[in-house]
Design a binder for these strands. Structure first.
Lengths: 356, 356
DNA sequence: CAGAATTTTTGTATCGGTTCAAATTTCGCT
DNA sequence: AGCGAAATTTGAACCGATACAAAAATTCTG
């Protein structure tokens, strides 16, 4: 038959039609082993005949309380999760882990301020993983109100406040990156920066960097400078160029970088994304990488390994970050304070000793 | 204060503490405009003081019934959504639309058969968008049982059965692609195929293609052949090479393709992904694209527009597909039968007249 | 075969809100 | 002050399941 009437069928209806109590009917679906085979089959048959869609998730949920899903929220439109290489890399690892635990992944957008509240408050998840917390105090605040476990990723300033967070050591990572190119013999460096404050692009000075809103960018700059200082290179000889982390602004800034007489032989890029835009620009401008200019990125996104040439970069331990983040949100063990992991230097094809 | 006792605070507790009825307390949160300012503020204050986390989503849900989220399911591990270019493109558009409607996106994995049931049955969504339905009869079956609106994408064989589906016209699309290169003067073509049956890679014959499991691949081959026939080219002169849609098998198959004496001057690739692997292989083998060999892809993924050289391809109307899919699952208007859209030829840099 | 032990089944409380008709209060006017 | 209309508030029903203690049925022991 498999007919359904106007109103949708409830467990209660099935129980009544099968002549058993609602408790038994419930067991047929959620603990089949506890009910007698004969009865189970009968109830199942009746259910099918009635067109019962199975226990409503909501009803079950209400009683049990566990959704078995993590929410991932970013102060970005949802498409960010699929477009940005870093986010994508992270999401790949997060979903891999959730998959293994049989948990779901829900994407929550925190794009507009008005909807942010609602989206976070109404997301059906057991906990949150927050991205891009720089400038996202509001997101953290609202998430905290929800009183579910959460953990912030890609933090920086979060360190000071008591926000559970997992991130990489940007200062050390950047230092190692700079040490690598300096070790190859480079002396004329340039820093290609991710966003420092809002929406600017172009050459900036040290004071501006120190006053940056985005602490991860600031920390990376700091790391680069530390390595230069240790090698006796005057940091003022290494100009800092801020990008908006898109192709247009990066290319514009590259043109600026190579317009003057003092051109760098190595570029320290704060993300693989802009590093790859830079390599692209260099290639189009007739320069070869790494022969004319070396480039080192940061993040270790999958694309960096398949690009042509393959990008030398500082690889973030994404698997580990994802594992801990999911564990913290689903496993109940809330992260205490800030956990800092180290990035790893991966030497590939975009760095070599300078020509001269 | 903001203390919370052992048990978590419920709306009822807040109401009692504030000395109002539960109904009023509920209104304070869900229909603030209906309650007197004075009362509202008082209740809010009490709630804050008690550390109330706001109305539980589950409770609300149970009464209202709408989750306001779409579930996207594929017979693939969850990481597929972030790794495969086509899936990523689709997800980008889907999330864009959901974002605009203020809806959430839940990823549900249908990786293993055992968990598939559970994942689909327990996903908290208002409807499903199904990917990769080829060979996914089971997924469709289980989704149907859930009795929520759903729509299948990237179908093919689905057409015959009464599954609501949205897809592109693979035959026509492929025909247009082949007509393009034939129109440029190419006569020696080769077909680089996506999966036809399970897990094989290498040259295959026409009978094998006709018996393919994956109907979208079969249809594309059919389209290519139609164009050849119309142009008076014997289809048997165009070998078909099946790949596993990964880099390794595509490169292996390319080596096979260019091993003999009769080498093609144009390659008809069934997806941008393998087309780009092919271009990559050609480049590494010392050939230039499109001067030595032309390549045309299929799908129109974002990467195809930024690759070097930019890929000529058949672009699927992803925005429209996503719009309709979301509309069908959230908007209540269930898709009737199969909706077929047309792919659009986008000529870029990988096709040109043959050298000779 | 009585009585104990075990397996099934039942009935009802509970999860945490929203809804809506009815009751109450407040307000505007004469 | 008196009265009807409008604005608020109340209280109980309800959403759809699961949990659990108690009751009933069945099986096992000596």
């Amino acid at each position: 038959m498999t007919r359904q009437g106007e109103a949708s069928i409830r467990l209660k209806d099935v129980a009544k039609a099968a002549g058993v109590s609602q408790g038994t009917a419930s067991n047929v679906f959620s603990k089949p082993e506890v009910v007698r085979d004969e009865v189970r089959e009968h109830v199942l048959a009746v259910a099918k005949d009635l067109g019962y869609a199975g226990p409503s998730v909501t009803g079950r949920l209400l009683r049990q309380g566990k959704v078995n899903a993590v929410g991932v929220a970013a102060i970005e439109p949802l498409r960010y999760f699929f477009e940005d290489p870093w986010a994508r890399h992270l999401m790949t690892e997060i979903s891999e882990i959730c998959d293994a635990r049989g948990a779901g992944v829900a994407l929550v957008s925190a794009r507009s301020d008005e909807r942010l509240d609602w989206n976070v408050q109404s997301a059906l998840v057991d906990g949150f993983i927050l991205l891009c917390v720089e400038g996202g105090e509001r997101l953290v605040e609202i998430t905290r109100q929800r009183q579910l476990p959460f953990v912030a990723l890609a933090i920086g300033a979060a360190a000071a406040r008591d926000i559970p967070a997992i991130g990489v050591d940007n200062i050390t990572g950047a230092r190692v990156a700079a040490e690598h190119v300096i070790g190859l013999g480079h002396r004329r460096l340039a820093i290609l920066s991710a966003m420092l404050s809002h929406g600017n692009a172009g050459r900036v000075d040290a004071d501006y960097v120190r006053a940056a809103t985005y602490s991860s960018s600031r920390d990376r700059a700091r790391g680069y400078w530390q390595a230069m200082e240790a090698a006796g290179i005057d940091r003022s000889t290494a100009p800092v160029f801020e990008t908006r982390e898109d192709e247009a602004s990066t290319h514009a800034v590259m043109a600026e970088m190579f317009a003057g007489p003092e051109q760098p032989t190595a570029i320290l890029a704060m993300s693989d994304k802009i590093a790859m835009y830079a390599v692209d620009w260099l290639f189009r401008s007739g320069r070869t990488v790494p022969d004319d200019v070396s480039v080192i990125g940061f993040d270790g996104v999958p694309e960096s390994a398949v690009a042509t040439p393959k990008l030398t970069t500082m690889e973030q331990p994404m698997k580990e970050i994802a594992r801990r983040a999911v564990e913290a949100t689903l496993g109940g063990r809330q992260v205490e304070g800030k956990q800092v992991l180290q990035a790893r230097l991966v030497v590939r094809e975009t760095t070599s000793p300078p020509k001269a």
